[in-house]
Write a protein that binds this DNA or RNA. Structure first.
Lengths: 109, 109
DNA sequence: AGGGTTAGTTACTTTTCGTAACCATAGGGT
DNA sequence: ACCCTATGGTTACGAAAAGTAACTAACCCT
């Protein structure tokens, strides 16, 4: 069967891709440069590059080049990206209400 | 650096694990059996089993065994799981507003 | 004993991730 | 002209996770 709404399925596919949520969270606080995000997230350059390309392709992230010295490239959210704010906010609220510090510190199993 | 709230990071890790979102969506419509979910989702038994175990371990999903013939096992959401409803709902809304049918039908690139 | 029914598990291949080392562009210093 | 530095990536490769299909376990029925 599998009669899920294909648009919902697509949205889930994008949002639930690993690291995408954290990247969106970073960008909701304003535009960021590649190296800032690399330092601020537990993710390496290879995957950050990959995810930013994906999000740009999906129209969620914009890439702005400033030809200064040294070159500055800023990533920011489009309208489509900003519209994801409620999703991130709800996840924050849920984490606040239901995730205990024990769960976080405990070993994986 | 990486000074994200560890509880938020943990929440994101759970929710953004592949297929978890779709599984939660299914269970928000009420308890479901293993075979129902397998049929209703684009996911194979191996991974469904895996994810249900993960979600049970995280206290999001409950597993109820009914010793009938044939044996019936139902999965349902705990309070912690039900509390994720707003997240799923926001994703649905976002998909409705921002995902076009073209994006869904188009080849992957 | 043999077969049907549900709920998984195992074995194996393909894809994606994660880490570290490397490359490209461009301005500045000497 | 030459090298140095900074930013923003890319490449290469071993490890982990996903995907697929076939198999198993428990239980009842005939």
């Amino acid at each position: 069967m599998n009669d899920l709404c294909p648009r919902f399925e697509k949205a889930m596919e994008i949002i639930s891709k690993r690291w995408v949520g954290l990247i969106l969270f970073e960008l909701l606080n304003g535009a960021k440069r590649f190296s800032e995000m690399e330092a601020g997230l537990p993710i390496s350059g290879r995957l950050l590059s990959d995810r930013l390309k994906l999000l740009e392709k999906e129209g969620i992230v914009k890439r702005n080049i400033y030809s200064e010295f040294p070159v500055r490239i800023e990533y920011s959210l489009s309208e489509k990206g900003k519209a994801l704010e409620p999703v991130i906010k709800d996840i924050q609220d849920w984490a606040h209400d239901w995730i205990t510090m024990q769960e976080v510190t405990e070993p994986k199993a």
